[in-house]
């Protein structure tokens, strides 16, 4: 193995190198998962409990009190589909955003592609995501609600969700190195984001004149599309999805490019 260390190298993607470190990525994700529920009484049950409680609150407020109209889809299925997407996104952004700062003891001691750290958080999130999917399947079964053929489109939206969450997580993790302020804004962004995304209510409730701004939120298209895959009702929200794809691609390029730039000086400024 030959390589050069130069003062001013180009910031390349170095995907091959990333692939060489795939075992480390897996180990870091596994470590996070094991540690998360260590010494808790309920252990992995927490992964079920959290969405369950949120769902109950949503039902109470949006279904019983506000009586949001979700057409032929039972409200719990409607809300849970949105939550599944949202929970993954918010978990990855929150965890990845603080991940580099949290890993500074490793970063200043050993070399590996730093991108692995936020990526490992995106990987851990997948475990919770799958658990929530099982939960969703249970609720579908309870309501004897058979998903339509549109469910075969689901992988497309999952891919979009993975890329979007990863990109935003990577971007925040890099920004947080330079600006510690980011750490404090992440919980705020997540809180606001939950109300600005069609999780507990359908996007059709948003007045038409604000709809363009609403669609700028790349999660709008993903959540609506995800829900369309599960329930197969209403029309496919094409416009929102196009917005989602464009914004997600943009974020993906920007975040990895910026991360690679910051990566070179991480150990010096962290």
């Amino acid at each position: 193995m030959k390589y050069e260390i130069k003062a001013h190298g180009k910031s390349e993607m170095r995907l091959k190198e990333l692939w060489q470190f795939r075992e480390l990525l897996l180990m870091l994700a596994l470590r996070d998962f094991k540690v998360r529920y260590a010494q808790t009484f309920l252990g992995i049950l927490w992964a079920f409990l959290q969405p369950l409680v949120t769902l109950l609150i949503f039902i109470l407020i949006f279904d019983k009190a506000i009586k949001v109209n979700t057409g032929s889809v039972p409200y719990p299925i409607f809300a849970l589909a949105g939550m599944t997407v949202w929970n993954y996104f918010s978990y990855v952004v929150a965890q990845a955003g603080n991940s580099i700062i949290g890993a500074q003891s490793i970063i200043t001691k050993i070399y590996f592609p730093r991108l692995i750290i936020p990526l490992s958080k995106a990987l851990v999130g997948v475990i919770d995501f799958v658990i929530t999917l099982f939960f969703l399947a249970g609720v579908l079964f309870y309501y004897k609600f058979a998903p339509s053929f549109t469910i075969f489109y689901l992988p497309l939206f999952l891919l979009l969700l993975l890329i979007l969450s990863g990109s935003v997580g990577i971007l925040f993790s890099a920004l947080a190195i330079r600006f510690r302020d980011i750490q404090h804004t992440i919980p705020f962004i997540i809180q606001v984001g939950m109300y600005l995304s069609p999780i507990a209510y359908p996007a059709s409730l948003v007045p038409e004149k604000y709809r363009l701004f609403y669609d700028l939120n790349p999660l709008t298209g993903i959540i609506e599309g995800f829900r369309w895959c599960i329930t197969g009702t209403e029309g496919l929200p094409v416009k929102s999805i196009v917005f989602s794809v464009v914004i997600t691609s943009f974020l993906c390029i920007i975040s990895t490019y910026y991360f690679r730039k910051v990566e070179e000086v991480i150990a010096d400024i962290i």
């Binding site: 193995m1 050069e4 260390i5 130069k6 003062a7 540690v35 490793i106 001691k109």
Partner: peptide, 30 residues
């Protein structure tokens, strides 16, 4: 390769392992 030099270059031929600390990445819960 933890940090970059401000100027100059190094060429390395071989697999490097660096031990700047023992127990890097050890987690108390594991």
């Amino acid at each position: 390769r933890i940090t970059k030099p401000t100027s100059g270059e190094i060429s390395i031929d071989g697999r490097i392992a660096s031990l700047l600390e023992v127990g890097t990445g050890f987690h108390p819960e594991l």
